[in-house]
Simulated assay, not measured.
Amino acid sequence: MEIRIVKVPLDEIRSFRTVFLQERNFQFICNKCHDYGWADTYLFIVDGEGAGYGAVWGTDRREDRDTIFEYFLTRPFRHLADTIFPQFHALTAATYIECQSNDPLLASMLYAYAEHIHAEAVLFEDDAVTALPVSGVTFRKRSTDDDMGDDDSDYVLVKDGRIAASGGLMLNYNLPYADIYMNVREPFRRMGLGSLIVQELKREAYLMGRVPAARCNIGNHASKATLLKAGFRTCGFRLKGSIKAAP
């Protein structure tokens, strides 16, 4: 059996990425790395046939290529995962693996080949429709008259004539997902406004034909509680580990 791993342009592995995203069926938070040119891609060839691909990027600096963050084999070749991965690692000389826990193939490589594994973020998917009541609050798109400072959010909550919270939808992830972000201004915190604006942003996502998703840092318990209250549920974690030295 001949295995070759060749660095190729994104277009040469795009069909494999399509299958990867269809099979995983979740928001892939590193999807934009390809669109922005932050990653290098490699084609896996087994006995002359395309078998899958891998991708690396920089974990701290975008110009580095020290982290494996995508690793995919089509079903006929998936039994070769533990054969191809060490060769892929040797070629790229990557020192880290980053993956989502809901990506079973790369997660299995993480636990087999890495150490010092830790979770950096919690991932959320929509689970329930909520109807959170907060009286005297208006949700709307921002206007040119709003005092936003350096906040470029597209939506706001207004209470007592003042902007109490802001947020928006990031659309640079894989279709059909939209990543929700929000911020509640200090005088208005602990009033339930965070969950309220998330609830309304979820509705906006669906109106534009997108599926809302979200994430927060692993230690941000307030944001996690806000997202859960707004009808999200935990669907995975963003994991990272250092690749072990070869024995």
Rank of each mutant, 00 (worst) to 15 (best):
E2D: 13
E2Q: 12
E2M: 10
I3E: 06
L10W: 13
D11N: 13
I13H: 10
T18Y: 14
T18L: 11
V19D: 09
F20Q: 01
R24E: 07
R24H: 14
F26I: 12
F28V: 09
I29Y: 15
C30P: 10
H34D: 10
H34Q: 09
A39E: 04
D40F: 08
Y42S: 08
I45E: 11
D47P: 05
G50I: 01
G52E: 12
G54V: 01
A55G: 11
W57D: 05
D60H: 13
R62V: 15
R62T: 09
D66H: 10
D66K: 04
D66Y: 04
F69E: 02
P76W: 14
R78I: 08
D82F: 15
T83V: 15
P86H: 06
F88T: 03
H89W: 12
A90R: 15
A90N: 12
A93T: 05
A93M: 09
A93Q: 12
C99S: 11
Q100V: 03
S101H: 06
D103I: 03
L105W: 07
E115N: 09
H118R: 09
V122Q: 04
L123G: 01
F124K: 01
E125Y: 02
E125D: 05
T130H: 07
L132R: 08
V137C: 07
R140A: 04
D145G: 06
D146S: 03
G149E: 00
D150P: 05
S153H: 07
D154A: 12
D154W: 03
Y155S: 01
V156Q: 02
K159M: 14
A164E: 02
A165E: 00
S166F: 02
L171T: 06
N172G: 08
Y173M: 08
L175R: 15
Y177V: 03
I180A: 03
N183F: 12
E186R: 08
P187R: 08
M191P: 01
G192Q: 06
L193A: 06
S195K: 05
R203G: 11
R203P: 02
E204A: 06
A205F: 01
Y206A: 08
L207F: 07
V211W: 05
P212E: 02
A214V: 03
A214L: 08
A214Y: 02
C216P: 04
I218Y: 12
I218P: 00
G219K: 01
N220M: 10
K224G: 03
T226C: 13
L227Y: 03
K229C: 07
R233Y: 09
T234P: 01
C235D: 06
C235Y: 06
G236E: 00
L239K: 01
K240W: 03
G241R: 05
A245N: 10
A245F: 13
